[in-house]
C-alpha cells in the first residue's frame, strides 16, 4: 500500500544532505572520554569495596567482643546461677535479700500491711482472759516485788 519509492517530492530529493556538523576533532577523543566515563563508576565501586574489605575484620572483632561482653554481663546479673535453685539461696548476697524484701514490701498495700502487723497482737489480746488482766493490774507490784517474783 505504501510504496516509498515515489512518495518523496522533488524538494525532499533535493535537500537530502546532513545540515549538522560537530565541533572540530570531536570524534578524535570520544573513545577516551567514554572509557573514562565507564571507569569512573567502576573506580568508585572498587574504592567502596576496598573500604568494606578493610573494615570487615575490625567490625567482626568488635561484634565478637560485644557478644562476649553481653554474655558475661548477662550471666553476672542473672538471678539464676548454673548450680541450681537450691544453692541460689546459699550464694545470695545480703543485698539481694534486701532487694527481695523491699520488693515484697512495696508490692503490699497499706491495709494489708497494717493487718499483717497487728493481726498477732489482736489475736493475743482477744485470747487473753480479762480476769487475768484485771488480776495483773490489781496486784500493783513495785519493782522490788517484781524482781523477787522473778527470782523465785
Amino acid at each position: 500500500m505504501y510504496e516509498e519509492e515515489n512518495i518523496e517530492s522533488e524538494f525532499l530529493k533535493r535537500h537530502k544532505t546532513n545540515p549538522f556538523r560537530t565541533p572540530d576533532h570531536y570524534f578524535d577523543t570520544i573513545e577516551d572520554r567514554i572509557m573514562r566515563g565507564i571507569e569512573q563508576p567502576m573506580i568508585t565501586k572498587a574504592k567502596s569495596g576496598r573500604i568494606i574489605r578493610f573494615l570487615k575484620p575490625a567490625l567482626g572483632l568488635a561484634a565478637s567482643l560485644s557478644i562476649v561482653y553481653l554474655l558475661v554481663n548477662y550471666s553476672m546479673n542473672s538471678p539464676i546461677v548454673n548450680t541450681g535453685t537450691k544453692t541460689e539461696t546459699a550464694v545470695s548476697s545480703p543485698s539481694d535479700l534486701l532487694d527481695n524484701y523491699t520488693l515484697n514490701l512495696t508490692s503490699i498495700d497499706d491495709n494489708t500491711l497494717a493487718s499483717a502487723i497487728f493481726s498477732d497482737e489482736t489475736s493475743n489480746i482477744a485470747a487473753t482472759n480479762p480476769d487475768e488482766i484485771l488480776a495483773f493490774l490489781a496486784s500493783n507490784l513495785n519493782d522490788v516485788e517484781i524482781y523477787s517474783e522473778i527470782q523465785n
Binding site: H15, P19, F20, R21
Partner: peptide
C-alpha cells in the same frame, strides 16, 4: 544549535 550549517531550506525541512 551552533553546529547547524544548513541553509534556510534545510532549516525549514528540520
Amino acid at each position: 544549535d551552533t553546529y547547524f550549517d544548513g541553509d534556510e531550506w534545510q532549516m525549514l525541512l528540520q
